[in-house]
Each structure stands twice: as C-alpha cells, then as structure tokens.
C-alpha cells in the first residue's frame, strides 16, 4: 500500500485520449444509426410482414439480445475470414455493434409503435384529417414522444459499449488508454482519467439529448 498516484506523466497524454473520445462518439453514432435503420425495418416487419419474416426477425432479436457483444464480434472477426470475408478491426467492431444495437432498437421501436392507440387515429379521422395529416399531426408526434427517451438511452449505452473496440485494437478512448498505459506504466492513473472522461462524455450526451428532446418533441427527459 505504498504506491502513490502520480498524474503528471499521464496528463500530457490527455489531448491524445480526448482524440480517442471523438472516435468513440463516431463509432457510437455509426452503430446507433445503422442499428436504428435495422430496428425500424424489423419493427415494420413485425407489424406488417408475413409470418416467416416475423419469425426470422424474432429469431435475430432473441439471439443477439441473449449473447455477449464481445463474442459476437469475435465471431465476426475470426470466423468470417474463413469464409473469405476479411474485415478490418474497425469494420468488424462497427458491424458487430450495429447488429447488436439493431436487436435492441427493434425491441424499443416495436414497443413504441404498439403504444399508438387505435382511438387516436379514429378521433383524427372523425375530425376530418386526411391520411397524410393523420401521419404528420397524430402518428409521428406520438411515436417521436414515446420513442425519444429510450432511443437516447440506447445512444448512451452505445457510447459506453464502444470500449469493447479496444479489445480489437481500435484506437478509441479505451484503446488509446491501453496505448498510454504501455507507454507510461501509470495504469491506475490512465484508467481513472479515462473513467472520468467517459463519465463527462456520457453526462454531456445525456444533457444534450435531454435539451434536444425538450426543444424538438417537448419530451421531459431525466438526466439523473
């Protein structure tokens, strides 16, 4: 217990670490957007698709939600080359995270669509709204309001999940922490600084998303 924390050697690497935070956000944004598109398609299939397509979507969601992301990426990264598909670590991580996020976002959006009640549309029809008007004034505001909090929550989860990319030598925040660690051997100092960066990063994202939601859809999202 006679180790003293010395931050001076690590502090000069903070700009380098913050550069990694940008890649973290990039990876989170890519996987979130692709996952969102997957989720939107899947949720529509679950509502309107034929039975075999619905079963396939349910199988995809159940499988990806019940297996670890790390092993999914291992599988993509090490097994696909045997089938002749060679992926860079960044691509493998991005694909794995997108597929994984897609499963969660399918669930979220399915629940969001289900929260729309028949009566709302009936009331709009009774008041003489045309179909585009119903979609624009009734359906979309409802869905946006219902989906915004869980979607922004999922984005925060994506930001934290990107740390797994470090295991595949992608130089995002945690990956750069590994680099600085092997350079300075100030392990606890490096990782505690990185922990604080993650804390600030996710808090800033939560705050920005809450403000955006309040401004766009009048959603009262909680940051704490």
């Amino acid at each position: 217990m006679n180790y003293s924390l010395i931050y001076s050697q690590v502090s000069e690497h903070i700009p380098y670490l913050l550069g990694g935070a940008i890649l973290t956000l990039e990876l989170a944004a890519i996987s979130f957007l692709v996952g969102w598109a997957i989720g939107l398609t899947n949720a529509s299939i679950l509502h309107f698709g034929p039975r075999p397509a619905r079963l396939a979507v349910q199988g995809y969601v159940t499988f990806f939600i019940n297996t670890p992301l790390l092993v999914q990426i291992f599988f993509i990264f090490f097994v696909l080359p045997d089938a002749g598909i060679l992926l860079s670590p960044y691509a493998a991580v991005a694909i794995g995270m997108s597929l994984n996020a897609g499963a969660y976002l399918t669930e979220i959006q399915r629940a969001g669509f289900q929260s729309l009640r028949r009566e709302e549309i009936d009331a709009a029809t009774a008041m003489g709204f045309s179909v585009p008007q119903i979609v624009w004034y009734v359906v979309l505001p409802h869905i946006a309001k219902a989906l915004y909090p869980p979607l922004s929550n999922q984005f925060i989860i994506q930001v934290m999940t990107t740390s797994i990319a470090a295991i595949f030598a992608v130089e995002e925040l945690t990956g750069r922490a590994y680099n600085v660690n092997s350079l300075t051997f100030r392990s606890l100092e490096v990782f505690s600084i990185v922990a604080v960066i993650y804390l600030v990063l996710t808090l800033a994202c939560s705050l920005a998303l809450a403000l955006l939601g309040r401004w766009l859809f009048r959603v009262k999202a909680r940051v704490f």
Partner: peptide, 28 residues
C-alpha cells in the same frame, strides 16, 4: 449513494474492470 450510482452506471465495464484490476495490483 447518488454519486456512486451515477458514476458506476456511466463508466464502461471494461474500464471499471481495468481500474479495479490495477487498484488491486498496486495495493499489493
């Protein structure tokens, strides 16, 4: 309690693991 909950929910598992791993190592 609030600080603990907020902090530990906003740090990735891998980073927490590394912090605790090195904390154990350095404390001897």
């Amino acid at each position: 309690a609030t600080a603990y909950v907020e902090v530990f929910r906003r740090i990735p598992f891998l980073v927490k693991l590394m912090c605790i791993f090195f904390a154990f190592q350095l404390s001897g």
